[in-house]
């Protein structure tokens, strides 16, 4: 636990220093997306990596946050800082209501149900044209402001997003190493044993599903206010799968792993632009190789690789 907090502090310093290191520029914009995706991956990891429950509908919660914030701040001129928590609460309530029946399902059935949920939400974004603008999207969403500072540049957005991302990471690290986090992992390893020890697995699963949806919704609101334009295409089934890939590639049950997965999957397409036409093939092949040779994800695979190359050094790869 101490080790995690130390690592987190170092990571936070790095995040704070990054704009100086990279001298602003285009990369800042990409790092904003890394931040948003990290938040989403951490949220999904709480559900999948800790509680062992899959969701193929998380892009839907992300989209709901974005659209609720977008609609409230444009059509109804509500202050963005007020719209964000309202959106989060609404999404939390929806997730809680859906969670009770859906989380009774296991394995493939849960995957199918959450997939269906994501698709329904996607269809709603497309079809309720009066509200969402339909497939052509919703524009003119205001930037966030604090005390006269408007978050309208890449560097400002970088700090805004990463403030939230770090908060979500710290929050999740605390949770993982606590009574509730242990109960979640216990349910994952042996639900029946956890129940026998007095853990109410059902309620716990709904709680973490709701929490995960709320974090995704906040990420969605932030996305809407930094992009100022949203359209349904960003919140489709593809993106749910991409989030799942980030969590698995990064390492199930590791908060830092989710960052690594999000960073890799966000940065890789940018680098692969140089080899356009082949980018999608290389991308796919890289993911396959990584899953095959790093079954524990990057967060465990990289230290193992390091030890292999630089000899038998002691150390543990878990974070």
């Amino acid at each position: 636990m101490k080790k995690d907090l130390l690592l987190f502090s170092a990571f936070a310093l790095l995040v704070a220093a990054a704009p100086q290191l990279f001298k602003g520029g285009y990369l800042m914009n990409v790092l904003v997306f890394v931040g948003i995706n990290t938040m989403l991956a951490v949220a999904l990891n709480l559900l999948l990596g800790y509680a062992g429950q899959i969701s193929l509908g998380h892009a839907g919660f992300f989209g709901l946050g974005a659209y609720l914030s977008g609609i409230m701040t444009t059509t109804y001129s509500i202050d963005p800082w007020l719209a964000m928590p309202i959106a989060a609460i609404v999404v939390g309530i929806i997730a809680c209501l859906i969670g009770f029946p859906v989380l009774k399902l296991k394995g493939h059935y849960l995957a199918m149900a959450t997939l269906g949920l994501g698709i329904i939400i996607f269809i709603v974004f497309n079809e309720t044209v009066d509200l969402t603008g339909g497939p052509s999207g919703l524009s003119g969403i205001p930037n966030l402001k604090i005390a006269g500072v408007t978050f309208d540049s890449d560097v400002k957005n970088y700090y805004l997003i990463w403030f939230f991302t770090l908060a979500v990471m710290l929050f999740s690290l605390n949770l993982a190493n606590s009574r509730v986090g242990r109960a979640l992992r216990a349910v994952h390893d042996s639900e029946i044993a956890a129940q026998v020890l007095g853990v109410n697995a059902r309620i716990l699963k709904v709680q973490v599903f709701t929490l995960s949806a709320i974090i995704s919704s906040i990420a969605g609101s932030l996305y809407a206010h930094t992009m100022t334009f949203i359209s349904p295409a960003s919140f489709g089934f593809n993106f749910s799968i991409e989030l799942l890939t980030m969590v698995v590639i990064g390492g199930l049950g590791s908060i830092f792993g989710s960052f690594l997965g999000a960073a890799l999957l966000t940065l890789l397409p940018e680098f692969l632009r140089a080899v356009n036409d082949y980018d999608i093939i290389i991308y796919g092949a890289l993911l396959m190789v990584m899953v095959m040779f790093m079954p524990g994800g990057l967060v465990r695979g990289i230290p193992a690789l390091y030890r292999k190359i630089f000899g038998q050094r002691k150390g543990t790869g878990n974070a």
């Binding site: 009574r179 242990r182 109960a183 992992r185 216990a186 994952h188 390893d189 042996s190 020890l197 853990v199």
Partner: peptide, 18 residues
């Protein structure tokens, strides 16, 4: 039925859930 991914101490800590 142990919680295989958790440490021995963490396993017992889950026992204190109630």
């Amino acid at each position: 039925e142990l919680f295989g991914g958790m440490t021995v101490l963490e396993n017992v800590m889950v026992g204190m859930h109630t």
